[in-house]
Amino acid sequence: MSRFRRLGRFLVALPPYAWLVVFFLIPCLIVFKISLSEAQQGIPPYLPLVDWAAEAGTRLRVNLGNYGYLFGDELYAAAYLGSLRLAGISTLCCLLIGYPAAYAIARAPGAWRHSLLLLVALPFWTSFLIRVYAWIGILKTEGLLNGLLLWLGIITEPLQILQTNLAVVIGMVYSYLPFMVLPLYANLEKMDLSLLEAAADLGCRPFRAFLAVTLPLSVPGIIAGSVLVFVPAVGEFVIPDLLGGPDTLMIGKVLWAEFFDNRDWPVASAVAVAMLVLLVAPVMVFQHIQHKRAEATR
């Protein structure tokens, strides 16, 4: 490769590379650094990690206390498990609603498919905040759902739905449903239908054929959709904050409270690092393995 071309490549790679190092990698390292420092009253509300004391020389002051605090206080473990649980339930509900929808679209007449799919993706383009907000008016005690149920005579007293975990699950399913349907559709649409014909020719009932042929073949789509729903749901803050109640424990809410309400930046940073290690790292490793496997089978 000529020196000139090498320079050209360098100039192409430099802007995004430099941007990501300065505004992504370094901030992550700063979060890690602050998670190891001690809190103080003042601005910024943490002590420097490296002490430039004149007589004693440079002293590294590493404080693992923030992490000890995370493990010591039950709140954090409960919040982390609570996030996993609510995200898991939401993912399952998305799958139960999204699978039949994706299946129906994939088997619809060819001319309709594009429009039907667009209808699923459309809400994603309208504001996320507004879509969550719309549920407040529906779910609250004097809201539309309770009004309808009272009017129908199904209930005699309004139900408390808003500010419960049920409301959080509804909000998350609503917000993330398109993320489940799109990869499932992509998978189901590609499926070789002659396999089902073969099953039918051999005397297999449609439902049995579904269980024995379609479902196993759609596992990659199920996994892709579930990851797309589960990952953002675990770290979700807006939905539990607006729809959840005081007993909705989610890790995103805890981080927010540590940072904005308690102004304890070191503990907030430690929560963030714990989240990265326990959530983001496994997902990235998983995706890396999937990617490698896909390349190997190609």
């Binding site: 990501l20 505004f23 990698l25 770290g235 981080l255 940072f259 930046w265 907030a268 983001v280």
Partner: peptide, 20 residues
Amino acid sequence: MVAAPLVMPEIITGLAMLLL
């Protein structure tokens, strides 16, 4: 570095940016 922001919870990205 390109893939990480896709799976990074927004709340961590926000915190990291502010601390930077």
